[in-house]
Design a protein around this nucleic acid. Structure first.
Lengths: 187, 187
DNA sequence: AACATGCGTTCGCCACAACGAACAACCCCG
DNA sequence: CGGGGTTGTTCGTTGTGGCGAACGCATGTT
């Protein structure tokens, strides 16, 4: 009983290849040459007939100048706005912290975007997230002391910081009206 | 003078497979069974000896419950801070616009994080990025009018907006001292 | 018209990725 | 001491993905 093969990934790859190649303004032959693969191979790939190996896909991604994952992920939607104060609030914690989930991580995508408003007084300790998680933090207003335990840094408006989120870490507002953007990336 | 083969992706995949399998608490045999592949194949993959095709990798990603791209992305570092004003200033310091690339997208990663400071007066028109690109915008201070051509929205402090970045779009500061975070996501 | 240069497709060949069985090493229970 | 259950490894075989030549089809040049 062989299962009906899941051809979805192949279709995505085929579509992505055609899309990216068109965008780069390259002919099939030219792209094949640059990627160092046979154009026949590329032709079959764009026809979604085949099952490329990593080396081939990698060469194509490099030649196209796009990240690898672009070739194997599904498409996306259009426009959406969340006003300040709207959106699902996460700030059930202390009264001094209000986090708003701006962009959740749909299955397949892997990053959450939060806007966090905090008042001084209490540091918020965060449990380690799943391994591979990386957090990016950009301060909007006020001052923040944040980072992995023992490696905290103090940040002012405009400062950016990134650190591993799979270890214990914390955020602490040092000024009233502190607000920052937190991108949590589940690599 | 043929290429020394770029084994980097294979090493990443091998490491990712071992990591994710350990995280899932599965034995090699068990994972192979769940993924519907021969355990010998998986054994060789984890030894980075080989060049797997998409179908195989896909099955493994599904069995591991992780997005495909997890398996082909490089590891990550620990802590990094970029102070306001530091960092690679992205081009057009055309008086009214200063963009700072906070987190670049190395091959394999798939999102850039910018902090942009803008002054009113001139709208900045952005060329369409590669298809599939999605932009997320969070206003820190001031007011911004931004979005795809014809669908611009006006945003104030704390407002969040997301839209497709693969069509023509623009940003325009409406107040002095306007600053916002731009997450450009190449899904 | 004849020829050249680009395109994307199709075909036969061959290396190799995936398979499955057999393997050694280990553990737990009778 | 088996015997039955793991674990991950290493083999020989086979299916197939990638290769390169040849093809048909458009342009452009002489």
């Amino acid at each position: 009983m062989h299962e009906v093969p899941d051809r979805l990934p192949m279709d995505w790859i085929a579509a992505s290849l055609k899309r990216e190649r068109a965008r780069a303004g390259l002919s099939l032959s030219e792209l094949a040459k640059r990627a160092g693969i046979a154009k026949s191979t590329l032709s079959q790939l764009e026809a979604a007939s085949g099952n490329p190996n990593v080396e081939t896909l990698w060469a194509l991604a490099v030649a196209l100048g796009v990240p690898f994952s672009v070739l194997v992920e599904p498409p996306v939607q259009s426009v959406q706005v969340i006003r300040a104060g709207e959106g699902p609030g996460v700030g059930s914690e202390q009264a001094s912290f209000v986090g708003t989930l701006l962009s959740a991580s749909p299955p397949g995508a892997r990053r959450d975007i939060y806007r966090i408003c905090a008042e001084p007084g209490s540091a918020r300790a965060a449990e380690p997230h799943i391994p591979g998680t990386v957090e990016h933090l950009v301060v909007g207003t006020g001052r923040v002391k944040a980072g992995p335990a023992g490696e905290e840094a103090e940040l002012g408006p405009g400062d950016y910081m990134t650190y591993r989120g799979d270890v214990a870490h914390s955020y602490e507002a040092l000024m009233p009206g502190t607000a920052f953007v937190l991108v949590m990336q589940h690599v």
